[in-house]
Simulated scan of single mutants.
Amino acid sequence: MSETRLVIVMRTDLGMGKGKMAAQAAHAAVIAALRSQSTPAFADWWRAGQPKVVLKVADEDTLGLVVAAAEEARLPVEVVHDAGRTQVVSGTATCCAIGPARHDELQPVTGQLSLL
Rank of each mutant, 00 (worst) to 15 (best):
M1L: 12
M1G: 14
T4Q: 06
T4N: 04
L6S: 05
I8E: 00
V9P: 05
V9L: 03
M10W: 03
T12P: 01
L14N: 04
L14M: 12
M16P: 02
M16E: 07
K18N: 06
K18T: 13
K20C: 02
M21Y: 04
M21S: 08
A23Y: 11
A23H: 12
H27I: 08
A29G: 14
A32S: 15
A32D: 02
L34K: 15
L34S: 13
S38M: 07
A41G: 11
A41H: 15
A41L: 13
F42Q: 00
W45K: 02
W45G: 00
W46A: 13
A48H: 06
P51M: 03
K52L: 07
V53F: 06
V53E: 00
L55P: 00
K56A: 15
K56R: 15
A58P: 06
D59I: 12
E60S: 08
E60H: 11
D61M: 13
D61P: 02
G64K: 05
G64M: 02
L65E: 13
V66C: 06
A69I: 02
R74S: 11
P76M: 10
V77G: 00
V80C: 04
V80T: 06
V80A: 09
H81Y: 09
H81Q: 12
G84Q: 14
R85M: 11
R85V: 05
T86N: 10
T86M: 12
T86Q: 11
Q87I: 03
V88H: 11
V88A: 08
S90R: 15
G91W: 11
A93D: 07
A93S: 15
C95L: 05
C95W: 05
C96F: 09
A101E: 03
H103F: 11
H103P: 02
E105G: 04
L106K: 00
Q107H: 05
P108W: 03
V109C: 08
G111S: 03
G111K: 07
Q112I: 05
L113R: 06
L113N: 00
S114M: 10
